[in-house]
Amino acid sequence: MEVLFERPHSLSNVVNSYCPGCTHGIIHRLVAEVIDEMGIEGETIGIAPVGCSVTAYNFFEFDIQQAAHGRAPAVATGIKRVHPDKFVFTYQGDGDLAAIGTAEIVHAAARSENITVIFVNNAIYGMTGGQMAPTSLVGQVTQTTPYGRKVENQGYPLRVCELLSTVEGAAYIERVSVDSVQNIKKAKAAIRKAFECQKNKKGFSLVEVLSTCPTNWGKEPDEALEWLRENMMPHYPLGVYCDYTDKD
């Protein structure tokens, strides 16, 4: 009997805490598949943020630290400096990375910290019940923008890949999505490339993954994917924003 598809070893065989149809689960699996395929589970140390994926330490099989809100890149820096030969990655949501943790992510990139960041952008605060995120779109209705996000009051959604790609220390930055089978495959390739960037000591790598929040968007899981395509992708174009991984 040949196995064509199964749960990756480094993804714990448990029911995760995510809502039905939330694509966090897919992203977790992609990270685990890449770690399995590179054979680095034993040398990987992850950092979980504060947000829906705060209990990611229950969903992976490798060593993991849970960081204060927004501080995962700093925690990762501390770990990577102690274990420069280990694979260190953070898994962060948009509130964690682009609101409270903006300074930490910018400076981790500026230092070209040799870590990988998996940045899940679902344009909302999921764990706390659907508040505006720094990546919520203009006009998007949330618990804290009940009349839709207004530019004159809450300004504009942050484009993290574009922002960080201007930072010299950034070695590899790509934005991907998990809204379709084809895009999931591309997302996996990007995550693999980011981990290879770290393996080859090229410096800071980040993959931004557009993701859904069916519960707080108030949509069925497949409708949420549709909403992502129609609304998020125009504001958050997919693609590689910087790639110096071939530079020695």
């Binding site: 630290q65 204060a68 700093a74 925690v75 820096t77 501390g78 770990i79 400096r81 102690v82 930490e104």
Partner: peptide, 8 residues
């Protein structure tokens, strides 16, 4: 938080 990571 770097201390937290390194200590951990």
């Amino acid at each position: 938080n770097m201390v937290y990571g390194a200590a951990g």
